[in-house]
């Protein structure tokens, strides 16, 4: 099969679009890992809950998913904070097996609650721009992907500003780097854990919400993203949110272009090969030495 330049560009762009979503999901995951040292298996399920909230606010109130994302962010921040306060705070010092079990258990709980109330049927959100396409130089862009992409980029920039400009953002990064030293300068790390989990959860939920304009919502929706997010988190150096933001785009593009130029079935294995290669040759990830201790 001949490779057509426009199609190649189109598939690279598609990779960037979906990659921006991976970035957001992964940034939340990596923040939680970096700060709390918890591998949050519930991240995908929380993302899926965000998708459902976007769906239902659209269904009942006619609210566009992008608008509902503005409500979803604080709602899921609060939810994440509560999960930390009532569940994780008890196990933050526990073995990683206990942590794994509790986040995994949380996943099953959320999925089954969703299944119970809303069954597993997929649900589609239809917006005024669902069938809006733009044509430019042989390329076709659909409004839902483009809008979700820009929303994701905005969130990414917002996250960066928050973590570099605000006191809480800086305190989160300080806690991630050295819990004890952070306490020494007066940072109440317990509260920071809550904030971090809230922030990570909100990012996942918003990522879920903004893709509902084109991605079918169902109780398993988060899982496809979670798997790739783990790859991105390792690729982007565990705990490094900038690495995750860039890594998400890289995985998106790798996945999409290998799907086009090579074999479609290669795309996931290839993302996995990249993942393994990085683990073997660059155990610290692409973006430096985060994990000294």
């Amino acid at each position: 099969m001949a490779i057509e330049p426009t199609a190649l560009i189109q598939s690279i762009l598609a990779g960037v679009f979906v990659g921006a979503i991976y970035s957001l999901v992964s940034a939340g995951l990596t923040l939680i890992w970096g700060t709390m040292r918890i591998v949050n298996f519930a991240h995908g399920a929380l993302m899926m809950l965000g998708m459902y909230m976007a769906y239902w606010t659209w269904y009942f109130l006619g609210l566009d998913p992008l608008l509902s994302a503005l409500v979803i962010f604080p709602t899921f921040f609060a939810l994440g904070y509560a999960i930390d306060k009532f569940l994780l705070r008890r196990i933050i010092q526990a073995s990683s097996v206990a942590q794994l079990l509790i986040t995994f258990g949380l996943t099953l709980f959320i999925q089954n609650v969703v299944l119970y109330f809303w069954r597993s049927d997929i649900r589609l959100v239809t917006t005024s721009y669902s069938s809006l396409y733009w044509h430019a130089g042989g390329l076709v862009f659909d409004a839902p992907h483009v809008i979700a992409f820009f929303a994701a980029i905005l969130c990414g920039i917002g996250l960066h500003l928050f973590l570099t400009r605000s006191s809480i953002g800086l305190a989160i990064r300080a806690t991630a780097q050295d819990r004890e030293a952070a306490q020494t300068v007066g940072i109440e790390t317990k509260r920071i854990f809550g904030m971090t989990f809230g922030l990570g959860t909100a990012l996942a939920a918003v990522a879920g919400a903004i893709i509902t304009s084109y991605y079918p919502v169902n109780p398993d929706s988060g899982n496809q993203f979670l798997f790739l997010a783990f790859v991105v988190v390792v690729l982007g150096s565990l705990g490094n949110y900038l690495g995750a933001l860039v890594g998400g785009l890289i995985i998106g593009v790798v996945q999409s272009t290998t799907g086009y130029v090579y074999l479609a079935q290669a795309e996931l294995p290839l993302a996995f090969v990249v993942f393994l290669a990085i683990l073997i040759f660059m155990p610290e990830g692409l973006f430096g030495k985060r994990l000294r201790r």
Binding site: S167, L170, Q177, D178, A181, G186
Partner: peptide
């Protein structure tokens, strides 16, 4: 720390990945 007890370590524990200014800004 909030009561005014400061502390430094035998091996300095600055926040490595943050800039000098950020290291100061993160203090509540």
């Amino acid at each position: 720390a909030k009561r005014g007890v400061g502390r430094t370590f035998q091996v300095p524990r600055v926040f490595d990945n943050m800039t000098v200014v950020e290291n100061l800004y993160c203090v509540p």
